[in-house]
Design a protein around this nucleic acid. Structure first.
Lengths: 206, 206
DNA sequence: AAAAATTAATCAATCGTTTGATTAATTCAA
DNA sequence: TTGAATTAATCAAACGATTGATTAATTTTT
């Protein structure tokens, strides 16, 4: 097993669970089963380890998103595909997304936040482009496009960031995670249904 | 000026900006213009200060929410009122809500998290009750009610937790905050429009 | 044997908290 | 109405513990 990989793995878990400041280098070393000095040896510092971990993960989703946007299908289908992809990616990698979300919520202008913000911005603009395309083709009605993107992102984030709340709200038995396939498809269906109702012109047939 | 109040005031700011672990007692003391010892003197510990601060704020909104739920108006109107109230409360008190959101996202089962979760749960159930009422009266269609609540909470949270992202996305000039009245009404209108489209039966007239 | 990986020991800095002393305000007794 | 006793508020200084990081020595790999 690659120790460097192993460190990145436990870093994702611990940072998600205790936050950046709440995770000490000794906690990381203990959980990874290595000596503290190895962190500096491999990554230079705790902060660089954090940045490396985020960097490695943060770019993956966007390529697939762009692929969808370029596929020659209807905007409605594109949007459905985007939702399926986004929900699946975020729920199955909920650790890193909780970390990102928390980092951003601090409103601290670090190099890291800027990098993350820019990537999320690209994702958002891709979705906006899809909606605009649908509006030009008159199959989507006029809505607040930016806020609509906020609804997509926000609904998914809500589920992973307030997992305990959502669990209680949906009467999940404690063994079942909000990342389960069942919840995943339920969220996908909800978002598709919601956006369909939201974007379909009022006088159009259902 | 009451020093105890002043401490709670700056605590809200600093915890929102730097997180709990990222805020030292000396930072708090410096910003509040008091001696570090006063924190222990007044609150016992940093943790208790945190809990006091959250406790003081977290209960306020719910009373008003319940008032709306009991007012004898149509479920559609109730929902609109709930949205107006919730958006206004969260945007104008965005510090405490960022803190709460972050605390919950840690998934750490502390007494604090339980208290917060329970209160949010009550709020959520109040909204669910309103939607159910509308469904019984056949003026709302069948939807995933729990997920719909997640959409309401999530959309609002998205705006305050990813303020930098939202600012760029909506081309706000840097002086304008996401908590401005302009954005507030825009968010309220979006949510009302979204939920109206989502909940209105398909074969009903617009 | 040279290089890379790993270790225990240690560093200065900072953490949250406590201490003992001092001041200012209030209460009580004469 | 003084003067003594008590309380609350505030302070600088220091506490032990922990932080992220580094050192120098040792082991492992090539």
């Amino acid at each position: 097993m690659d120790k460097k990989e192993r460190i990145l793995e436990v870093a994702e878990e611990l940072f998600a669970e205790h936050g950046f400041e709440g995770t000490s280098t000794r906690m990381l070393a203990a959980k990874a089963g290595i000596n503290v000095a190895m962190l500096s040896y491999y990554f230079g510092s705790k902060e660089k380890l954090f940045e490396t971990m985020v960097d490695q993960r943060v770019n993956k989703t966007r390529e697939k998103l762009q692929l969808i946007a370029e596929t020659p299908i209807s905007p409605a289908e594109k949007l459905n595909n985007v939702i399926d992809l986004y929900v699946e990616k975020i729920l199955t990698n909920n650790c890193i997304h909780r970390i990102i979300h928390r980092e951003i919520s601090l409103h601290q202008r670090s190099e890291m936040t800027n990098v993350i913000t820019d990537i999320l911005l690209l994702n958002a603009q891709e979705i906006i482009r899809i909606i605009h395309e649908g509006q030009e083709k008159k199959i989507f009605r006029e809505v607040d496009v930016e806020m609509t993107v906020g609804t997509i992102f926000g609904t998914i984030s809500q589920l992973i960031n307030s997992a305990a709340l959502c669990s209680k709200l949906m009467n999940l038995d404690p063994t079942e995670s909000v990342s389960s396939v069942k919840i995943q498809t339920r969220l996908q269906n909800h978002l598709k249904d919601l956006l369909h109702a939201h974007l379909t012109p009022k006088n159009a047939s259902a």
